[in-house]
């Protein structure tokens, strides 16, 4: 069953993120994907994550399609103007890609080419709208397309953001212009997430709660300080701090599993962002009872 079918049926879905390499060596990345075959319903392929130049999302999605794995093509507004964005969406469709996650994208100043010209010709809302229009057989200027790309369009939302109302307004807009599912920023605080879910219930749109495995107490503290909408509870930080280095993956998986079990009660899926710890994802899924 495809990712879209599962979503429509209302089944619980699992997606995981794949980070394309900086360079052309794709074997390791593909192996990591291979390990998850059958365990996850979709692979999010990031688009120059954190504004760091690397192999493109489009090519990697295509490689996954070739191997019979289902990709979710992440596309950001940072690097392309409206011509290139529309064209890349057409290309993606032709290459067998059916799921697209639309994001604004980090600012280039945060990445490894801070001198770059930021494009942001469109933003996530307008790009979603454009993608929907393309699906109806027209480009954004109303010109007819010969063959139309019909995607399952997704977007992101940050449940921990403050003020939340502002997030919700943007989420509403995204739904209005065609977002059919949402993946969230990392969740560590289940109670807060539950409140969020209560607020978005009315939209009746599938939400996949985000999971980022903690690698250390330091990482948790860093995220608390710097990453928008993320607050790792003291308890988890303490658990990570007390664990010996060798023990950390085990503890981290234990935390992750606890969160996934909680999320499962609240929404329709989970989205795992391993950030280099792809190898631990199978164990995490097992521990959460999803494998």
């Amino acid at each position: 069953m495809s990712f879209a079918e599962k979503l429509n049926k209302g089944s619980f879905v699992v997606t995981s993120e794949i980070g394309p390499p900086k360079g052309t060596e794709v074997e390791k990345m593909l192996e990591e994907a291979e390990v998850l075959r059958g365990m996850v319903d979709g692979f999010n392929v990031t688009d120059l994550q954190s504004s760091v130049m690397r192999l493109g999302s489009l090519a990697v999605c295509h490689l996954l399609v070739e191997r019979g794995l289902e990709p979710i093509f992440q596309i950001t507004c940072r690097d392309r103007n409206r011509l290139a964005l529309q064209s890349d969406l057409l290309s993606a469709y032709v290459l067998g890609i059916r799921n697209v996650l639309v994001l604004t994208g980090d600012h280039p100043i945060l990445g490894d080419h801070p001198e770059a010209k930021p494009v942001f010709d469109l933003d996530s809302v307008s790009l979603l709208k454009v993608a929907s229009t393309l699906g109806e057989g027209e480009d954004m200027k109303g010109n007819k397309l010969d063959g139309k790309p019909e995607f399952l369009l997704g977007a992101v939302v940050n449940p921990g953001a403050d003020p939340l109302e502002l997030q919700l307004m943007k989420m509403e807009k995204k739904i209005e212009v065609g977002a059919k599912f949402f993946q969230t920023q990392a969740i560590y605080d289940l109670r807060k997430f539950e409140e969020f879910m209560k607020k978005v219930e009315k939209y009746k749109v599938p939400i996949l709660g985000g999971i980022v495995l903690l690698k250390s107490a330091g990482m948790a503290k860093y995220m608390n300080e710097k990453v928008a909408g993320v607050s790792v509870p003291e308890r988890y930080i303490k658990m990570m701090a007390e664990a010996k280095k060798k023990e950390r993956p085990r503890i981290s998986i234990q935390i992750g599993a606890e969160l996934i079990k909680g999320i499962k009660q609240l929404c329709q899926g989970v989205h795992i962002m391993p950030l280099g710890w792809e190898r631990y994802v199978p164990r995490l899924l097992e521990a959460s009872g999803l494998a």
């Binding site: 604004t104 994208g105 980090d106 600012h107 100043i109 930021p118 943007k170 928008a228």
Partner: peptide, 28 residues
Amino acid sequence: PKGLLNGPCGGAKNGKCEVNPEADCAWE
């Protein structure tokens, strides 16, 4: 800094911009 017209990018932390933490998030 991204010139967004449809709402915040979601990167702001404590009301501060992710690109320039000394600046307020315009959308907030």
